[in-house]
Design a binder for these strands. Sequence first.
DNA 1: TCGGAAATCAAGACCC
DNA 2: GGGTCTTGATTTCCGA
Lengths: 92, 92, 92, 92
Amino acid sequence: MNDFAPTPEADEGDAIGGASREKLRQFVARIERLEEEKASLAADIKEVYAEAKSFGFDTKVLRKVISIRKQDRHEREEQEALLDLYLGVVGE
Amino acid sequence: MNDFAPTPEADEGDAIGGASREKLRQFVARIERLEEEKASLAADIKEVYAEAKSFGFDTKVLRKVISIRKQDRHEREEQEALLDLYLGVVGE
Amino acid sequence: MNDFAPTPEADEGDAIGGASREKLRQFVARIERLEEEKASLAADIKEVYAEAKSFGFDTKVLRKVISIRKQDRHEREEQEALLDLYLGVVGE
Amino acid sequence: MNDFAPTPEADEGDAIGGASREKLRQFVARIERLEEEKASLAADIKEVYAEAKSFGFDTKVLRKVISIRKQDRHEREEQEALLDLYLGVVGE
DNA sequence: TCGGAAATCAAGACCC
DNA sequence: GGGTCTTGATTTCCGA
């Protein structure tokens, strides 16, 4: 079954059951709440860059720094994952 | 001068002054902190979609719903901006 | 191999085969032709705004009106897309 | 007077005269028509890039090529304008 | 897992 | 110079 309504129940005039409807409402609310916070953080980040710029820092370079550090972190995590893998193979 | 260091000060062996260096560190830390929170929220959102999916909801539809509601909000803001424009043009 | 040339062929002194070269030329020509027309239309639009202004209309308001109507159209399309999604999910 | 309505006429219940209203409608229609064509061309261009990609060309490089040629054209026009200026100064 | 499609985001151009 | 529009790049996400 490929319904949008998840629960199989008798139609009461709605294409989607009351329970599902409520559940859907909750999902939408949760997502929108999180999106809002995310947007707020994005705005904060922008502000920090602006402040840094007002201190004379080159935001382009600054962004590059952030990005490289992120990559480094990512690499380090991969290294660790690899190490874990090795250790696992050797036997704990 | 094309330095990354913002403040014009005598070189003391460093290409960037101690104060600026400290300030830079702080900016990087603040940005990374905020980015981290943002990434965390993005992960949360993804989770919610996954949960909704496990409840039988079609995530594609759900995403579309979220997107349309967002546009509605945006449109409402634009309408108000237009009204302000009208008032500004007619008034005074 | 990291060539710009798409087809793997023996080098005959050129880094890119004659056929590909010709094809590339055609793509560039087509794009530039379309870009030209687009620029021309942009100029036309600018003219219309100028004319409207000369008739006493506030171009800022006018632009906002155009923008809102565009959003309306877009939103309507999204609604239809959502409907199609619904139908696709429920139906079949 | 800073009205949006361009023509000073007695209010007939509308904030903007019938003639102006009609004129506005026409401006909106013209602009939207042109915008539509422009959007259509933009879509065409996108298609061409997609087609080029399907032929194995790197669209990023292709875009760069287009952009550089555009700059070249622009420079050449400036050179010519400069030449005209010179010639004008020397006297025809 | 890969590739393409889409959203996000900042940079640049351009006009007022 | 301020604001808007456009473009370009990056990232993200889903489906195959």
